[in-house]
């Protein structure tokens, strides 16, 4: 289990213990975190699980695949260097305490 802090579009912060190996998208939707739409169910096909990882820690995460990078071009909200698709990030001890800001819109 790794604790991830999600910041919802409203600003509300919610810390979730996400089982290791789960995607951060799954951690969000299973726990009712607002703003992760995830239309495609985690298939890297819709870009509606857009989030901004803490810029100070973005470099600690595994780099996005070519597919994720391509799909990030389709996010509805502002794309920033720390933009990631939550379905492509897997909970792991190295991510402990990671703060993830959910994009303010997914459409």
């Amino acid at each position: 289990m790794t604790t991830i802090t999600y910041i919802e579009p409203s600003g509300r912060e919610v810390a979730i213990d996400v089982p290791d190996g789960w995607s951060l998208m799954q951690g969000a939707t299973a726990n009712g975190v607002d703003g992760i739409v995830a239309e495609c169910g985690g298939s890297c096909a819709c870009a509606t699980c857009h989030c901004y990882v803490d810029p100070a820690r973005a470099g600690e995460l595994p780099a996005p695949s070519a597919a994720e990078l391509d799909m990030l071009a389709n996010v509805a909200a502002e794309r920033r260097p720390e933009s990631r698709l939550a379905c492509q990030l897997k909970a792991a001890p190295a991510l402990a305490g990671l703060r993830v800001r959910v994009a303010d819109t997914q459409e």
């Binding site: 789960w22 299973a30 009712g32 975190v33």
Partner: peptide
């Protein structure tokens, strides 16, 4: 099963 969830009950209730 929890990883298949599209919307948790609390998200809809909110």
């Amino acid at each position: 099963a929890a990883q298949l969830v599209m919307r948790a009950p609390e998200a809809l209730a909110r």
